[in-house]
Amino acid sequence: MKASASNLNQTQIDGNVIDRCKRGDVRAFRELYNAYAAAMYNICLRMTGNVSDAEDTLQEAFIQVHRNIGKLESNTSVTAWIKRIVVNHCLNNLRKKKVYFEEVEEVEVAEEPGIDEDSFTWTVSAVKSAIHGLPQGYRTVLNLYLFEEYSHREIAEMMGITESTVKTQYMRAKEKVRQIVKQQNLIR
């Protein structure tokens, strides 16, 4: 019985499939792609903000994965390696579009007084919509920190900005999400 890519466990992907990919086995690369494409597409979509850019970025990233699979060291996590390639392609896509990341020194971002967040309807769709409505720089930092679980320092290094800028962008992004959700709740 042939196992589908979704049934493969991480050890099989890390070992057997990767070894076959390194030997040029096209079916093995298809298994690798099938195992990771959906998760990596979600990263691309969150970071680029639109389907077309997400699809293009995913394709470019997997072309690089294919070209460089032979360089993957056996002690490296396949998931982390592919994710890093995907995130780097997303960031390159944003740089091409001249996304602006505001350089700031320590800036305090004050919350609005008197916001009763307990009365908000915090639905997944409301939060997704709010995140999608963020300026691209804010959205990128928020996605990298919250969803991709990179540290502020790692984000700063990847983006070529200061750690304090990353922290400020993240704080402002969170506040903007709160404001958007609040507005959505007031409209209802």
Rank of each mutant, 00 (worst) to 15 (best):
K98E: 15
S164H: 01
K174E: 13
T162W: 05
F29C: 05
V141W: 07
T11P: 04
V78H: 03
K182M: 05
T165I: 12
Y41Q: 10
R95V: 02
Q179L: 06
V166S: 12
E60Q: 14
L8Q: 09
K22V: 09
E103A: 15
E105R: 12
V51Q: 08
D56R: 07
A126W: 04
D116C: 08
E102T: 15
K22L: 00
T57S: 05
S4V: 06
D53T: 09
Y100D: 13
L144S: 04
A173F: 04
T140P: 04
N75F: 14
G160T: 09
R178S: 00
S4M: 03
K71Y: 08
I155L: 08
C21Q: 10
V109N: 14
T162M: 06
A156K: 09
G15M: 01
R139K: 15
S77I: 13
Q184F: 02
E55C: 04
I131A: 04
G70R: 04
D14Y: 07
A110C: 12
I155H: 07
G70V: 11
V141P: 11
I13G: 09
M159G: 00
T57I: 08
G137S: 13
E31Q: 04
E106C: 02
W122H: 14
K2A: 06
A126C: 02
P113K: 13
I43D: 09
N34G: 13
T168F: 06
V78K: 13
Y138C: 05
K96V: 07
G160N: 02
K2E: 11
L72T: 12
M40I: 02
N93F: 02
C21T: 00
E148N: 02
T123A: 10
S164Q: 05
N16P: 03
V99K: 01
T123V: 07
T121S: 15
R23E: 14
I180K: 06
C44A: 14
R67Q: 15
D118A: 15
G114V: 06
C21A: 07
L58C: 07
F29Q: 07
A173Y: 08
I131R: 02
M171D: 00
T79M: 01
R178A: 01
C44D: 07
F147K: 03
T123H: 10
R20K: 15
I115K: 13
T123I: 04
L45G: 09
T76N: 10
L72K: 15
G15R: 03
L134P: 05
I115G: 02
A54W: 08
G70A: 04
M158Q: 06
I187P: 08
A110R: 15
Y170P: 03
T76C: 12
A80K: 11
